[in-house]
Amino acid sequence: MSSRTRATVIGLLGPGISALGILWTLLRAALDSTPEKANLRFFLFDSPHLVVAIGVAVSVLCLPVAIHVALSRTEEVTIPVFDADLVAEPAEASPGDQPKPLGVSPK
């Protein structure tokens, strides 16, 4: 998977989750004939509201990461291995996994 594809997926995760929460809210408003009491407790613990909030948090968290990933080389976005023993003996790889150099960056 190229860095640009990874960056696109990372960048779209937050807005995607928020869109899911908004869609959930709208669907429920359209289908539920007995609306809930609109109080603070309802706002805090309602599932679609929480999904929208998490979507916003993910967007804020992931936007700089997505930009950084888009500007990085493929080697820089491989999952680092922090175990020195595993660097000495390469791990098992399944047919779907692309072999990549093991990199250790503990600090």
Partner: peptide
């Protein structure tokens, strides 16, 4: 209410793990 709070927490954690897998060294 706990179900939903923990659900929101795990939603965030699941996304974090997926982003860790995609961003690799950049994330870490």
């Amino acid at each position: 209410e706990n179900h939903r709070l923990f659900g929101a927490g795990f939603l965030l954690l699941g996304i974090v793990i997926i982003v860790e897998s995609l961003a690799g060294g950049v994330w870490f």
